[in-house]
Design a protein around this nucleic acid. Structure first.
Lengths: 242, 242
DNA sequence: TAGTGGTCTAGACCACGGG
DNA sequence: CCGTGGTCTAGACCACTAA
């Protein structure tokens, strides 16, 4: 196993990135056993402390779980796939596990930052400057569940041509080398506009939930703002913490 | 400085608990500088790795921030005080920072676990066995904002006589030695019952937000379930992540 | 018993901040 | 320059799991 030596990132980070890649791409499938610390030391030439720190990073991200005397295993929970958002995910009340989630892109364009009042401040940009906007509609078993609109800096304009029916985070990681690291969520109750009512197939004025993520990347730079308008009659929002 | 030696907890945990106490009780006030790693090594006799691991724990909890070349400082954000919940907090749209939050206890009693269908499973208990229930009403500048109902195992029945107009977590920590460590939150939209309408001073059937926390302690034991019914016209729910 | 992860130590070098 | 936190090493002992 070779960890790239050309960068100046800490060794434990190089190893963590390497292992994370292998987990996310399925080289280490769900619930499979990772190489032991001793094996990773041999493979990389790193000390045990460094190897352990890399594993601790992945454990913090809930990508692996460790068991004393047995080893480290890829976590059984879904990762950053298309069903999960920034540390939160939908769960349908009816078909909690089995339901099939699909995504369709409704709109993608460059828009001025002042379409939402919070955007210029978050992105540290002028109100008239452009942001990349991506609007996607998510379905659970064919029923519209959620309208998701993401805003990103103009440097991500390549996303306008990308295939975004999968995970936004996967594209950001693989094509732009950016990873979400922190931020905040806001939860509000919201009444459906005519457009929302049409897309989600509910009555105009129905009670919906509005969840907004403000997300920074690992360098502390603003990465994206995502706003989700959700139906509340057939789903609730669940978030794992700790 | 003496870290208690009688327990069998890891050294880094002893030191972290010790420092956390000093931060939460104001011995190290907000934004003040902590002793340097070298000083903590001298005070405790621990190695630098152990000291650093303790500090990393507090950094993970956002109680301190470290700055290379300068030192470690107590974070400037409010901690587990009465305005904050499990890693989330209310923010009034109007009086985001200045508003005054007050709390009144509405009810406290032993109730059977099956008052909510999720409780028996979470607490691993029989549906008829008792739980401690605490219902509190929270006001922002005198206006009712939120009905909060907490459920805890019967071992906490001492809480029925406790003064709970402050922080529940503070009482749990100081009187029971228990700390929240993880869990999940669920967000739903909810229509006001007659009782909710009365307590929150809204129309019956108004759209409210229902936030439920399922929280485990540091030993992995079920600690409490808290359900908050919130008005949505004058406040939104904000959560820091990462 | 052999292999695993959990804790801890002593020491090294580096990068950054401030006097 | 010195003191600070950030990274890394080599080695030790322990507790737990499984064969």
């Amino acid at each position: 196993m070779h960890v790239r030596e050309t960068t100046s990132a800490p060794l434990y980070r190089e190893l963590a990135d390497d292992l994370r890649d292998k987990i996310l791409t399925g080289v280490y499938p769900r619930t499979s056993k990772l190489p032991s610390e001793a094996e990773l030391m041999q493979d990389t030439g790193f000390s045990r402390s460094t190897v352990r720190r890399a594993l601790a990073t992945l454990a913090d991200e809930h990508l692996i779980v460790t068991e004393r005397g047995r080893g480290a295993f890829v976590a059984d929970t879904p990762h950053f796939d298309e069903t999960s958002h920034f540390f939160g995910s939908f769960t349908a009340q009816s078909a909690a596990q089995g339901g099939e989630l699909t995504t369709r892109t409704v709109d993608s364009a460059l828009v001025p930052a002042n379409v939402l009042p919070e955007l210029p401040e978050f992105f540290c940009t002028a109100p008239q400057s452009n942001l990349v906007m991506l609007t996607r509609l998510r379905y659970l078993d064919g029923t519209p569940l959620c309208i998701e609109t993401a805003y990103l800096p103009e440097t991500f304009s390549g996303l306008l041509e990308a295939d975004l029916d999968g995970s936004l985070y996967q594209v950001l990681r693989e094509q732009f080398g950016r990873m979400p690291a922190g931020g905040r969520k806001e939860f509000e109750v919201y009444t459906a506009s005519q457009r929302d009512a049409f897309l989600l197939d509910v009555e105009r004025g129905a009670a919906l939930m509005l969840v907004t993520d403000f997300v920074y990347d690992t360098d502390g730079q603003p990465l994206h703002v995502s706003q989700r308008i959700m139906r509340t009659d057939n789903a609730k929002y669940v978030e794992q913490i700790g």
